[in-house]
Design a protein around this nucleic acid. Structure first.
Length: 457
RNA sequence: CGGGGUGUAGCUCAGCCUGGUAGAGCACCGGCUUUGGGAGCCGGGGGUCGGAGGUUCGAAUCCUCUCGCCCCGACCA
């Protein structure tokens, strides 16, 4: 698609001819990849390893990453958090103030600039955001606030593995809350708790919040969010309620502390534990309520009080003129990790099965006989109509054998395949195949377009 | 960071033990035939054998050093 095909000011819909795309798929499994998501991401031409734990994102993979990022962004915004962007490179001095420069150890990538100033590639941003907030606020009227960014981080893992699931360079959403007191901090925490449930549900995932070690602060305000995936790293035991929750029609009002608190209470009062903490003898759930699953951690939220605000002098004046160190919490989602985690949760032997919300394209249009005038014309017509209808489509117009196109399309996992071949066309039909179920329907092109135009089920 | 493995064409790998100047399948290019689940035949292009040093008349192969990558463990969004 050329930009000049579009009048100025008109929204461009992503439609792509495979013959114009950069999608280097592999028939065989690369030897370096061990787990299924890593193998499939390499085979589907989504990523390319540049160094241990460091990846380039190719066009298809980058589209998915951006989809995920956008869902995370929208749910953060909905909760009232404000998006900012902090740099990847930070000065060492900032971390000396909090005492973490020495504590962080070899995981922190330390570098020097041309003036021999010590810098680092940020593994996280508590210090920087605290400084940013401190410099911009003075009064208790300036809280509460939540600020987040979606930025690349670097942790020099001893042993990166599992592809983007545990890279050294990774894309993360980290949000930070600033409140006047514990009660306020708890409300911010609750908002994020709910935002996380919504975020993962929107991506078609089952997420289970599990109480996590909260470190030196103590208390119960630390949860890890694990999404359910057969090949997950952790064994989990949890109440059915987590898997039965349905957010489709649920409206959330983040200003309604009672409603938000109610949702949090509903889930935090349910049982969930990893195999390390699960004791069958003490499990409060009846067998029919207990589900066993495997999970992958994709988010972590926690409250840490004044751990950074005190050493960094992040204080506001209270109503009576007193100086109050702000109460903080931080809330992370591993955005690049989610790309792999979603594949772990949604694939079969043939390849990836994208949930529609994060799919790089909604439809794969397969021309079974490129070069055949009727097939070419029918496909060109359908391609144009899909684009006009605002339905994102990848059109495989290459001169490949049918089997190759089918296998490739299954591999990259677009939710729908629209198959056009001479046999069907002779009967005035095309075939619509749902990737997830494998269900196929023969119908007219018009009916197929109408079906695809409907919102996701 | 401990333990193990590996590095030969874009991908998967053989060749190494026993030194003689590099191969297969897939992918790619051209031609013909095919065409509804990774096609067939013919022809073709492509490799500093990770790098450096050494032994030797001769090194992908033997020796030394070095770098990269992978796996198990400890650690982790």
């Amino acid at each position: 698609m050329r930009a000049s095909e579009w009048p100025l000011g008109e929204t461009q819909v992503s439609a792509m001819r495979r013959s114009q795309y950069f999608l280097p798929t592999l028939k065989e499994n690369p030897a370096e990849a061990q787990i299924v998501s890593h193998r499939l991401m390499l085979r589907a031409g989504m990523i390319r390893q540049e160094s241990a734990g460091i990846y380039s994102w190719l066009p298809l993979g980058f589209r998915v990453l951006q989809r995920i990022e956008q869902i995370v962004r929208e749910e953060q915004d909905a909760s009232g958090a404000l998006e900012v962007l902090m740099p990847t490179i930070q000065p060492a001095d900032l971390w000396r103030k909090s005492g973490r420069y020495d504590d962080y150890g070899a995981e922190m990538l330390r570098i020097k600039d041309r003036h021999e100033r010590e810098m680092l590639y940020g593994p996280t941003n508590e210090e920087m955001i605290t400084e940013m907030f401190r410099a911009g606020v003075k009064s208790y009227r300036d809280v509460p606030r939540m600020m987040y960014h979606i930025q690349w981080k670097f942790r020099d893992e001893v042993r990166p593995r599992f592809g983007v699931m545990r890279g050294r360079e990774f894309l993360m959403k980290d949000n930070y809350s600033f409140d006047l007191d514990y009660e306020g901090a708890k409300q911010s925490y609750n908002k994020m708790f709910v935002a996380y449930l919504r975020t993962f549900a929107r991506m078609g995932l089952k997420a289970i919040p599990m109480q996590a070690d909260s470190g030196p602060i103590g208390g119960d305000m630390s949860h890890e969010f694990l999404i359910v995936a057969e090949t997950g790293e952790s064994q989990i035991f949890a109440d059915r309620d987590f898997l039965d929750m349905d957010w489709k029609d649920q409206k959330v009002d983040y200003q309604d502390a009672e409603q938000i608190g109610g949702i949090v209470k509903h889930f935090t009062s349910r049982y969930a534990a990893t195999d390390e903490k699960h004791d069958p003898a003490k499990c409060p759930l009846s067998p029919d309520r207990l589900v066993e699953a495997r999970g992958i951690e994709v988010g972590h939220i926690f409250y840490f009080g004044t751990k950074y605000s005190k050493p960094l002098g992040c204080v506001v004046s209270g109503a009576n003129g007193e100086q109050i160190a702000v109460e903080m919490g931080s809330y992370g989602i591993g955005v690049s990790r989610l790309t792999g985690a979603i594949i772990e949760a949604s694939h079969d032997d043939a390849g990836i099965i994208w949930p529609e919300a994060v799919a790089p394209f909604k439809v794969g249009l397969i021309n079974l006989r490129s070069g055949d005038a009727k097939c070419d014309a029918a496909c060109a017509d359908i391609y144009g109509k899909l684009r006009q209808a605002g339905i994102e489509v990848l059109y495989d117009d290459r001169e490949e054998t049918a089997g190759g196109k089918f296998a490739d399309m299954d591999l990259i996992g677009l939710p729908w395949q629209l198959i056009v071949g001479p046999r069907g066309l002779a009967a005035g039909k095309v075939e619509l195949k749902e990737r997830r179920t494998g269900k196929r329907d023969e119908l007219s092109a018009e009916d197929a377009l109408a079906r695809l135009g409907r919102p996701a089920a």
